[in-house]
Simulated scan of single mutants.
Amino acid sequence: MDTLKKDEDSEEVEIDLEDSSDPEESEDGEEPQTLWRAQPSLDEEENIHTSTLVEISDTKPLITSRDARGVNNCLKVGFEDVIAEPPSVRSGDRVWIWSNALFEVSRVWIYRIVTALLALPMSAISGLLFGLLSCFHIWMIRPCIHCVLIGNRWIQGFWDIMLQVVVVPFLTSAGKCCGSLGIHLAKE
């Protein structure tokens, strides 16, 4: 007979597969031998924001957080976000329940179908694009910018001197001249 035991101290689930007619008695008064031990199942749907009418996945996800940085927070859309009936007009309860179920099922399955068709090609194209951009930036653009900055240190120095000698005194004196002006508005 199969028996299920759960220790209060441990978070493991023990299943004894020993064949015994009386689960209370065991040979020599010993604990029954544990042949199989499994971890308790974690509540997988804690972080999934969907309706209870539709089960998103029947397999354990490989990656627990697929949007860890919250890039697609704007896409957390439920049935109540799209279709909402005010209290003054209401459809029948069955219509509301079935339309909710149809919305959730069609949303999930259309996403799965389109993802199955486009995910791999778009991943390959995105990987190629970001790889090329990274390579060009690291090996071509950044060294060119550094070469230009190193070669043009004299232009930076000259520009800094021109600003300090000509522009700053001119703007300072213009500010002092215009600072003493006052405007008084009077209604006639």
Rank of each mutant, 00 (worst) to 15 (best):
R94S: 08
L149M: 09
E55L: 13
N73I: 05
S51A: 08
V95M: 07
P86L: 01
I48F: 07
S91A: 02
V13W: 03
D22S: 08
L53M: 04
G131E: 06
L62F: 05
F136S: 09
V108P: 01
L129V: 13
I150R: 09
E31A: 11
H49F: 10
E80H: 08
D93A: 08
R112S: 02
L120K: 15
W154C: 08
P61T: 04
G179A: 13
V148L: 09
T115V: 11
L132I: 15
I97M: 05
V95E: 05
W96R: 07
G131Q: 08
A101M: 01
I48C: 07
V105L: 12
L62I: 07
L35G: 15
H137I: 08
N73T: 12
G92K: 02
V148H: 01
G131P: 04
V166A: 11
A84P: 00
P32V: 06
H49D: 12
L149D: 03
D22R: 03
P86T: 02
E85H: 06
S106E: 01
G175K: 06
A68Q: 05
E12T: 14
N152F: 05
L17G: 04
W139C: 05
S57L: 14
M140F: 10
V108M: 10
D7E: 04
F158C: 10
L62C: 03
G151M: 07
C177L: 15
V165N: 07
V95P: 00
G70T: 04
E12Q: 14
T3W: 07
R66G: 07
H146S: 09
E31C: 04
R69P: 00
G182P: 01
P32A: 07
G179K: 11
D9K: 11
W109M: 15
R94A: 10
D93G: 02
T52Y: 05
E80F: 01
A124F: 10
E12R: 14
S10G: 03
I15T: 05
L185C: 10
E188G: 11
E8Y: 07
I150Q: 04
L128R: 12
S21F: 12
P23A: 02
L163W: 06
E30G: 02
E8V: 08
L17C: 06
